[in-house]
Design a protein around this nucleic acid. Structure first.
Lengths: 246, 246
DNA sequence: GAGTGGTCTAGACCACCAA
DNA sequence: TGGTGGTCTAGACCACTCT
């Protein structure tokens, strides 16, 4: 057995978390205690605890101790086609704040996703969707500039000027403006957050983000909108209902 | 400026990765170089690099250096309703190995998901689905024991005894046995991998896993099967096509 | 004030890879 | 063989929380 010392300590603590010796919300033994128990130096214990923190199992807190995180298992809940629904309908006591709405030159990735000519302008919206006062998801959205104008004309709702007002359903607005959103294609991955995301989502170390890329198209396959959702991995799940062919 | 030294070093390196000073595949300056440049001790540099590794930006390699990972942006690809399709149809040169297939007593979570009476038995299957010789996804599946028997009778294919043979489409087998799988409900989250998953998926540090829970039901809503998919976050994405109501 | 984790040092030895 | 990162020590000081 040629495992390292910190790996042994980490394995012991991980075992204790799994078998209930250290239930969620409780504290691990302190660093000095563990130094004593295993006869190792402080940094060796710290390496072990860092590892557990990066696995998302514990959160070390200064002046308090190392507390075991509540890894509530995924709720197998309803809310099918989640991102296609407004945030307010998905959550209770949820907020949906538009923190940015402006016309910009589309970057190459957006050009490709929306199949626009090079140099096109798009409306870029950023929303912070929160539950319980904490941002749970960052929603970046890009809409072709002419579609934005059409909506403003048809609905008297200006997505830029009225960005602080209650946001109506964008798909409804598109239909009022004569567009026919037909399908949304959503691709999900995950990765570790960058420092910005860590801040706005208030993520503890060891929590990844769930990333959803969406492209909405009409019946002809013309893209009407594209979005990127970045959600806190410990607070977000997305549910889809897939019909099976017979 | 009350930021720590390792945070400063990490920020500089992160900046260099983003602006192309250290392109993907290249190496960061060595630890001794960075000690020299910043006038700090070895562990301080290591703290900074650990941070970047946990963000999934770099992979330190013994004897080589700290190499910048290739963070290819998510492919906005095809394969809608991915997990409902057999692995062989989703991938080229993919393998799908059944590494375990046995009847077990269902644990409480499975009991709930399949709405079975307490103490029921289920067929538990574990599959390793790989691309290019590397396991990309672990598929855990639970099927009620009576459904397993029905399939064995109706199709002459025994999911346990024939586990090393080519696997036919389970939904087809269900239909041959008189069941009608109608919808699959899939819930996606992400988290950091446990040590086992890190090993079988060969995950570098800083790569989370994409977790999909599926429940397949017939037209009456009776569960026929439930699965958990654990996929490498840097190699897996899942795509869904959502029809929008008009 | 006592106890917690966070940062940092200076030095050591080890495992690994490439030339 | 020389350079890389990985592990570990013994000790120090700091920031924070609780009582």
């Amino acid at each position: 057995m040629h495992t390292t010392r910190w790996a042994k300590i980490a394995a012991d603590l991980r075992q204790g978390i799994q078998d209930g010796t250290y239930p969620p919300g409780s504290k691990l033994p302190s660093i000095p205690d563990l130094m004593n128990k295993y006869g190792v130096a402080r940094d060796t214990v710290r390496d072990a605890i860092s590892r557990l923190a990066n696995e998302g199992l514990v959160t070390p807190l200064r002046g308090i101790g190392t507390v075991v995180r509540d890894m509530t298992p995924v709720e197998l809940a309803y809310s099918p086609e989640a991102p296609a629904q407004p945030w307010s309908q998905q959550t209770k006591n949820g907020r949906d704040d538009v923190v940015l709405a402006e016309l910009v030159d589309a970057d190459p990735g957006i050009i490709q996703r929306l199949r626009l000519p090079k140099g096109s302008q798009v409306l870029h919206r950023v929303r912070h969707q929160s539950v319980g006062g904490q941002v749970a998801q960052i929603h970046d959205q890009w809409i072709p500039a002419d579609l934005y104008s059409s909506i403003a004309n048809a609905t008297k709702f200006d997505l830029i000027a009225d960005r602080n007002k209650e946001q109506p359903n964008l798909y409804e607005q598109m239909r009022e403006a004569g567009y026919q959103p037909a399908t949304a294609t959503e691709t999900l991955t995950c990765r570790m957050p960058d420092p910005d995301e860590t801040t706005t989502l208030e993520l503890p170390p060891g929590v990844p983000v769930l990333v959803t890329h969406r492209i909405t198209t009409d019946r002809d396959g013309t893209p009407l909108e594209t979005s990127t959702f970045v959600g806190a991995g410990d607070r977000m799940s997305q549910t889809f209902r897939v019909p099976l062919e017979s």
